[in-house]
Amino acid sequence: MDEALRYRPRNRLLIIVGNFGSGKTEVAVNLALDLARSQSVCIADLDLVNPYFRCREAQEEMEALGIRVVYPKGEYRAADLPILLPEVRGAVGDPERLAILDVGGDDAGARVLSALADTIVAREHDLLMVVNANRPFTADVPGCARMKEAIESSSRLRVTGVISNTHLMEETDAGTVRAGITLARSFAASEGIRFECAVADRGRAEELAAEGERGPFLVIERKMLPPWLTRGATAGSGWFRRGA
């Protein structure tokens, strides 16, 4: 992939929102891993509404790269409790590290941001909405706009950009990604916000780049896997892990 097509965020406080199941965690984790190659990164797991598929599951891999991962530790790791750690506010206010907040789904998940809104607005930031056109309720521009409005009203913040993450898991082809980019661009244009990037695996991204798609692209590897797609995982707690 041509370096010029690689996604580089313009701000150092990135808040990832979107509807439930849009792929916020995959995007946040992959973005953290990508940016950690060149700078100091902190990621905070702010998903207080759903105990499954949270970025704390990829913690080991991220910490190995020097990424600071903020999430409730110990016995509360797998709890469905609305725990907002004080470290999150610290991470938001710390100019030394690029901070990524992985927020819960829908307006319900974004509500936690309203408690942090004062600290957030004091720093240059982007509120990035992840959109997967194959998910219910965000298949078209009006659906995306309704979701954006609901997230903005519960978070007391403004969405500044859209990340196109349209896929169908293993059944994703270049056409799937292309259709998502088209939707995300129209949505961004109609709302007057930025089209940030398109998310795709390496194969799909290269295919689209060869067709002349200018992206930029966030090239990802799927981290959140069901157990039957994991090999070489060791026995222990937790019910899905990184692939070997």
Binding site: A78, W228, T230, G232, A233, T234, A235, S237, W239
Partner: peptide, 9 residues
């Protein structure tokens, strides 16, 4: 209890 056997297990 939520411990899901892996393919290796």
């Amino acid at each position: 209890g939520g411990v899901v056997p892996t393919p290796d297990d």
